[in-house]
Write a protein that binds this DNA or RNA. Structure first.
Lengths: 154, 154
DNA sequence: TACCGTTGGTTGACGTGTGAACCAGTTGCG
DNA sequence: CGCAACTGGTTCACACGTCAACCAACGGTA
């Protein structure tokens, strides 16, 4: 470990800082949603996508694309959310293989209450600390990294 | 959802970019370690800390501090790692409550092989795309966000 | 010295994520 | 038309994370 070519001082510092920022941020936001709104981050994202879709309804595989989730994960999670009355699943009429997922009244109420509070948290935890230039830099970096990763995994 | 005060265009773009960069990066690095070295990210981090400690040995609670893990998580994970022969646990002589965790020969071999490849991945996926100024900005932002979070949760 | 609060760790129950196997419906092609 | 390949989903087994309850050892104070 100690004898391998490692990152230099500045790189190591930046990497650690980024990783812990990421952890802390995710943990804070998850906990807020969970404790205040009774939703996991996963629940929140499912409901957010559904509530933005026309009629609060999406084909299951389309939802999976938007969330970038494995299909088994989506299936398991929707099953749990259905049991809790947050969404309704029914076989699609257009394609008998598929399923339509619809947000329930209860799901709508929950996401409606949770969303503005979540946005406020994101502001308080992140954007309030950033200058416009820093914001721009973040976007630039993220774009480059994402592009690079796409090339690394063909 | 659509009628609540939301983030502005630039903020939304930055936030999405940061979140997906984070997801992609984590997923790429995890998958590399898992497929190539047969270790989860959690395994890797435990072994990395142990291998850097004198004698490859740490008190369990100290390891927990370094990893910032809940104690139950640490206990469960060390149990699994012990079953796989990666670490050895024994009651501490100094304090009969505590446990000493020692990296095994097998654990040492694995982390020794995995570490340089992981560093190379981090470079390829992240640092190779960044200027010195961007690196500096990252560190600055992460510091400010971390500080802000500390104030938000007293 | 005896007791009580604290500390270090383990356990059990449960929610969550992944990969592989599987299944039914659909599509393409001879 | 008939059948193989593909698609959309589910299920199973397992790894992982969190919380709450628990337990034994330690440490300070009456």
């Amino acid at each position: 470990m100690t004898e391998v070519p490692w990152l230099d001082e500045g790189e190591q510092q930046a990497w650690r800082a980024l990783m812990t920022m990421q952890d802390d941020l995710a943990e804070f936001l998850d906990r807020q949603i969970r404790n205040r709104d009774g939703l996991s981050k996963a629940d929140y994202e499912v409901l957010a996508h559904l509530s933005e879709a026309p009629g609060g309804r999406l084909r299951s595989f389309r939802l999976g694309e938007l969330l970038r989730w494995e299909k088994s994960r989506l299936s398991q999670h929707l099953g749990r959310m259905e049991n809790r009355g947050l969404v309704i699943r029914e076989r699609s009429l257009a394609d008998q293989r598929g399923a339509d997922v619809t947000i329930s009244r209860r799901g709508t109420d929950l996401i409606t209450a949770a969303a503005p509070r979540h946005v406020a948290d994101v502001r308080a935890a992140f954007f309030d600390h950033l200058t416009a230039a820093e914001l721009q830099t973040i976007t630039t970096i993220a774009g480059k990294v994402k592009e690079g990763l796409a090339k690394l995994q063909p």
